[in-house]
């Protein structure tokens, strides 16, 4: 059984990471938020980014998303060195971020939200038909089928549905890397399952997915790889099978773990044994 699972995950793994970050550093005045962070995000894999409050999870996310500019280090996108200086740069590469607050306008409907900022026009006027068709196609490809009408205002959606709309909005643009910031923080059991399924579906489409989460249940349910930040340093990253709950908690709280789980050394991640 173990062997089968290995083969499945191997077949999905690209040889090189989609996004490789090397030696990232970021400070805000005297406060050093990130020290020498190396992180790899693979296409077709869900990478969970864990860490306690203040560990630097959001700073790292915002650096990748181009909201913050890194002070040291280098990004490699499909093995080419790139600069991510603005959200626009990130979007051009195919990086989309779904923030915790989702950034949806409650008074607009699902289609309007999904196309906000990138409306399709027809002779200068909004091409509603075209946008509605595309939005419907994206939603159904992600199997977001619980909404009654894609013309209903976002205010009338449940938390999980809102999250789904935000994710669908992010993947509409041929994005290759989708980062989800605490996607299940405010959700109930059913809704959480819906969102995690969605993350899996993105992975199965060959996207790189990064999930930032506190919730170890979610992390172990959805992640192929786990990376842990501790006080601004990336203390460990490896495939999820190399961890158990206790070791992740140890890394999150102390930056090290004395526990040894069965290791699979095929991976290039930093070894995590303390």
């Amino acid at each position: 059984m173990e062997g089968v699972a290995e083969v499945v995950s191997e077949s999905r793994v690209a040889a090189e990471p989609l996004l490789k970050a090397r030696g990232l550093g970021k400070h805000f005045g005297p406060v050093q938020a990130l020290y020498d962070v190396d992180v790899d995000l693979y296409a077709g894999q869900v990478t969970a980014l864990c860490g306690d409050n203040g560990a630097g999870k959001s700073v790292l996310t915002k650096c990748i998303a181009g909201i913050y500019q890194i002070d040291q280090g280098q990004f490699f996108w499909e093995d080419h060195p790139v600069h991510v200086r603005s959200p626009r740069d990130a979007a051009r590469l195919g990086i989309e971020t779904v923030y915790q607050d989702l950034a949806l306008a409650d008074n607009l409907d699902i289609v309007q939200n999904m196309f906000l900022g990138r409306e399709r026009l027809n002779n200068g006027f909004l091409n509603e038909d075209d946008m509605e068709r595309s939005a419907a196609r994206t939603l159904s490809s992600l199997r977001v089928t619980t909404v009654r009408s894609i013309r209903q205002p976002v205010a009338s959606l449940s938390g999980g549905q809102r999250q789904s709309v935000a994710v669908a909005k992010a993947v509409m643009w041929n994005s290759k890397l989708v980062m989800l910031d605490e996607p299940t923080a405010a959700l109930g059991v059913v809704q959480t399952r819906m969102v995690l399924d969605l993350a899996r579906r993105l992975r199965d489409r060959g996207l790189a997915v990064m999930v930032i989460s506190h919730n170890l249940n979610d992390v172990f349910e959805v992640a192929d790889r786990i990376a842990v930040l501790y006080l601004g340093r990336l203390v460990v990253q490896d495939r999820a099978s190399a961890f158990d709950r206790q070791s992740v908690v140890d890394y999150m709280t102390t930056g090290a773990s004395s526990r040894t789980v069965q290791r699979s050394d095929a991976d290039g991640g930093k070894p995590g044994q303390g």
């Binding site: 059984m1 699972a5 089928t145 619980t146 009654r148 009338s156 549905q161 059913v190 959805v222 961890f243």
Partner: peptide, 28 residues
């Protein structure tokens, strides 16, 4: 391997939609 096993066996079907659908009906 527990984690990946659990994932491999996770149902691929759509999540149970009933709760969300009922909630949404009222305000469409």
């Amino acid at each position: 391997m527990e984690a990946s096993l659990a994932r491999a066996e996770a149902p691929e079907s759509a999540p149970d939609p009933t709760a969300a659908t009922e909630a949404a009906t009222l305000e469409v």
